[in-house]
Design a protein around this nucleic acid. Structure first.
Lengths: 233, 233
DNA sequence: AGTTGTGAACTTGTTCACAGCC
DNA sequence: GGCTGTGAACAAGTTCACAACT
């Protein structure tokens, strides 16, 4: 039953972890990486909470969910905690990610440098007709220029490439009208995680995980917050 | 005290509304707009919940927070509910939005058609040196082509343009290292809502609202969900 | 029949407060 | 002194269940 009674990571959690805790974990990780850059070795729950607007108890409870990582009288050691959180999140090994849809947004995603650093490698793009890309005659269509260029395949090749490349996650950046159909193809190809940028709710099988990023919705939430400015964020 | 006792919208809420409710409101709105497109006139809380994975009670409680909009025996009338939700969110009038940073992501945001439909108009872009943009000699630098092109100004003009154009919200799409400094300038210029795409926590005055969209974090959350696949989303 | 709106019950999440450790 | 980890207390969020209405 349950976790170890000694210091360190609890790898055998049986109870489900709440979404709220996991989302804060990512924020802790981001701050810790920044602290390392700034040369700070340790940080207390109070300090880390202050950086993010959380209470000290919140920080401690969140981290204690997974084991005992703090040092009484000292705080948390940044270089110790970072790999712990990455292991929990599942990003201690790099993920190979496909890009579905190479429009404006898709191209921006290819160019984004922040993914690799957090453990995500965009390894292939897919679109209806990759030959529309201006890559030059008879060349493998690609995007991103230089060493980080990724090949762009017709979407009909999705299943083949996903299997060959061991891809498990996809970013869905196609127009709303195509999103469900492309998602279905992705699932059929073996994808089991989708980051959905299309402003529609996807209907997916039970075993597939999906997170939606709808930029218009984010602006709506911001509008509400601005109008209802009464109290703090 | 409190809201009206008659049917309709409660405009004078004093208690704060929870973030969770507001985020679902945006999802309800998106589904209702889709339903209208599909020609559906009314929808029950059970149906609407099923589309989004919520319970019927959840949907009713959320909507009842703001007034009485349902029709017993009928459900909710889509064309009635949509303007109600938009009013609550604050998007019944269109917002003028600035884009800070015209890199890969910034350009994708300019090209995104989904904002206007939800009540957001991207009216001006800012960057360190707009003249780098290939717009032709001696022309006002602009981006987006055709009728929807927006002018791009040097960031030094931020305060002037924000005031002239009545801009209140900004999308921050600059590199992480510049984010805090540009955010400070935006606040000084009078912006009071920031959609932050930079992977850093911003330090902002009390009265400014901020929502962060960190794509690497979204992927992390997805990775965790995929690895901990035990139960449903 | 079908459906809403809502108090009450329940569940989940957050903060408090303090023992134990450095 | 400072700090963590955690049970207990508290707060917030969700679901239940049913009266009221069409």
């Amino acid at each position: 039953m349950g976790g170890s009674s000694r210091r360190g990571e609890r790898t055998d959690r049986d109870e489900p972890v709440s979404k709220a805790v996991v989302s804060r974990l990512s924020l802790y990780l981001r701050e810790l990486q920044q602290l390392i850059r700034d040369g700070q070795e340790t940080i207390s729950s109070t300090q880390l909470g202050a950086l993010l607007g959380f209470t000290d108890a919140q920080v401690r409870k969140d981290l204690a969910t997974f084991g005992q990582f703090g040092h009484p009288g000292i705080g948390y050691r940044c270089h110790e905690l970072i790999p712990v959180i990455r292991t929990i999140l599942g990003t201690s090994e790099s993920w190979r990610v496909a890009l579905l849809g190479v429009g404006n947004l898709g191209r921006a995603l290819v160019g984004y440098k922040g993914f690799r650093k957090q453990g995500f490698e965009l390894v292939a793009g897919f679109d209806l007709d990759p030959n529309q890309l201006e890559t030059g005659e008879g060349q493998q269509p690609s995007l991103g220029g230089g060493a980080e260029a990724i090949p762009i395949y017709p979407i009909s090749e999705l299943a083949t490439v996903v299997r060959q490349q061991g891809i498990r996650m996809a970013m869905l950046a196609v127009p709303a009208a195509a999103a469900q159909s492309v998602a279905d193809q992705a699932v059929a190809a073996g994808i089991d995680g989708i980051l959905n940028f299309a402003p529609v709710t996807l209907n997916l099988p039970e075993h597939v995980r999906c997170i939606g990023v709808d930029l218009a919705i984010e602006l709506e939430q911001l509008a509400f917050a601005v109008v209802n400015n009464a109290n703090k964020a």
